[in-house]
Nucleic acid binder design. Structure first.
Lengths: 230, 230
DNA sequence: TGACATTAGTTTCAACACGCGACTAATTGA
DNA sequence: TCAATTAGTCGCGTGTTGAAACTAATGTCA
């Protein structure tokens, strides 16, 4: 039996493993993804930031360093989105890739050297494995939106409730009703108001809030079958 | 820069990668996990079924074969739960492990050779990486309970609604209310009744149902912040 | 055989959450 | 001073939820 487990590395077939990161930031009403220029002669001009995995190195830490290097700053949040093998081509011909999604707040300055932001809906051609990762990353963000503070990491430390709502709409891909959104937010004790207000040209100034989760409301709700159809 | 992306495998440091699978089945009111006996001289007597990754091989397919071999049958459902590196010891000293969780219906016959079921709350000592994977696997099952037919894959083709409810309680780790559970189930059009009834000793016989999802109810609901506390 | 325990399945109701439109509030600019 | 614009709230109709009480069908045992 070729694959019988063994207590040693005997039988192991070393694999070239890459860590590939989808770094996201909001840009207006759309998400942007950070790409780096590929080496001359590559089949695509752009690719996700990635690096070869180092055997003795914790992949999550390493991936964070790769993202930080491409972004010029440490991302505010990051998580794995899955491993992909040779079914789709990788730009560096890695046999196996571990995908990550990272988010960062609204960007102030341009990214370093050969990095550049692209709107997620208008990406240049990517190697198939990278294209698949972008899709997985977007799904992962949407899925974790209500179990991890993803939306807050896409915003600066203080923000208006309209800012927050726009991030939710961005990630969910649909509009949300203002009153319902604020009612739910208040019930969850996730934000607290600051003393500051922001006036954005016309209209009433908006109060600034900060992310300050208070307590776990033991709101265990009923089983939800809705997403299971089909 | 050590990790600069490259369009070739130059610079790649080949890694010994393992595929490790947490195979789960319900047993009474608890989940059981399939373990295999480790080779003589290993630090732990038991381990999760695992195999070395093969570079040219799709990891998901390969993991399914590993699970099938340990179980003696093909699992009914399987998904990745994440990659872990050297921060925790692997029984085969793999530098990197890709974890999977698989589920199968109530087991009729014993598993082959050196495989054995253990209740998830009373597992023997496992290598730290395997122990962490079991925890991740349980979390992953709970998370996907409402987006994948996990619960139905833990049951035979026909089942009573009480069976189904007990699987949900098993995976959620809490009791659910009978009437609410059935109401939600009916609204989601996930099961259909058969003509058969099962009499289990005392009490009124229960009707048998089968998994037969009908339509997608486009039930887009409000934003849910409840799980974000703390 | 008939009361009772046991398990399956339904009904009912109060409380709450949600979608939604309409409302008030504070500011800029004409 | 008034319209336009954006922020934020209120109230109502409706649907969902948790909970308990109810009916239904079977086996057990005196």
């Amino acid at each position: 039996m070729r694959d019988r487990p063994s207590p040693t590395t005997r039988g192991a077939q070393p694999t070239a493993v890459s860590l590939d990161i989808v770094v996201c930031a909001p840009h207006g009403r759309s998400l942007s993804v950070l790409l780096v220029r590929a080496a001359a002669g590559a089949r695509e001009l752009w690719m996700l930031p990635w690096a070869w995995s180092v055997p003795g190195d914790a992949p999550d830490d390493h991936a964070m360093r790769v993202a930080s290097e491409a972004l010029g700053a440490k991302p505010a949040w990051m998580t794995q989105v899955g491993a992909i093998g040779n079914s789709r081509r990788h730009p560096g011909t890695a046999a196996l890739s571990i995908g990550y999604v990272a988010v960062t707040a609204v960007r102030a300055k341009a990214p370093p050297g050969n990095s550049q932001w692209f709107p997620i809906a208008g990406l240049p051609a990517l190697a198939p494995r990278h294209a698949a990762l972008v899709t997985s990353a977007q799904l992962a963000l949407r899925e974790r939106l209500d179990t991890a503070p993803v939306a807050f990491r896409l915003l600066p430390a203080t923000f208006t409730l309209t800012d927050l709502q726009e991030v939710y709409e961005l990630l969910l891909g649909r509009r949300v009703h203002k009153a319902s959104f604020r009612r739910s937010l208040q019930a969850a004790w996730l934000v607290e108001p600051t003393d500051e207000w922001r006036s954005e040209g016309r209209g009433r100034p908006a109060q600034l809030f900060r992310y300050a989760p208070r307590k776990r409301r033991g709101g265990r709700r009923g089983v939800r079958f809705e997403l299971l159809g089909g």
